[in-house]
Amino acid sequence: MRKVFAKWSTGILSLVALAIALTGCGGALSGTITESGSTTVQPLAEKLAAAFTEENPDVEIIVQGGGSGQGFKDAVDGISDIGALSRELKTEEAGQVVKHVIARDGIAIVVHPSTTVSNLTKEQVRDIFAGNITNWNEVGGPNQEIVVISREEGSGTRGAFEEMVMEGDLITTEALFYNSNGALKTAVAGAPYSIGFLSFGYLDSSVKALSINGTPATVENAKSGVYPIVRPLLFVTKSEPEGLVKEFIDFCLSEEGQAIVEEEGYLSVT
């Protein structure tokens, strides 16, 4: 019994020593930042956080999803230091927080990779999502019913999509609904003849991004303004950021931070 105790206590002591040693070196910054909100921003925020904590090992940044609405709410309620939104602030939200545009992002119209159609006009996209066009043969595809897949009400990506593409028309209730970019991508990749909308940062070979009005969905086209569906990605804070939170946001906007933004497939703001 005594031996076991001795073993344990040496173990704990060496752990403590290790912890002290670890805090001894490293950068001057320490503390915890919590970030939550948009699932569009989440992978980017995770990468930015990883780069920042690598430079400042005593800093912990907790990155969580939840959606744009949640990000705004968490920031206002003080649950998170930083809220992430993948859409512009609504007018009633604007006065309550300080916003920082950390990147911009295109929204791609994606289809199942087997789909033969590779270009749609913005009007066709609108009609498909409004439920006016229900068969691929109406837009030059096979005689197959279109499976419309959308994000949830409150999603930033959906909000931006509605604003820029739907222009007042409503998304059909026949659509399947998923509540994150990843889940939407999984659904589109899994269901033949499906169509959905997705953040540029999530694009990969599992889904096919359509050209809109003849413009391929690429970062270059979005940057030059030819690709029509682009929205800002925001960090919001309850008040003017200070201390660690300010350091982190400054890092995101720095050259190094913006390089990560480009690497992850989003558009830099500088």
């Binding site: 999803g65 939840g66 744009s68 609405g69 609904f177 998923y178």
Partner: peptide, 28 residues
């Protein structure tokens, strides 16, 4: 999770529970 009346067993639909879990994080 579509928000329509299922008219056949092959139709998509949404449950009350799914409605809560899907939207609670996005709602205000």
């Amino acid at each position: 999770n579509s928000i329509k009346f299922p008219t056949s067993p092959l139709d998509s639909a949404r449950t009350l529970t799914g409605n809560i879990a899907l939207e609670i994080n996005y709602a205000s």
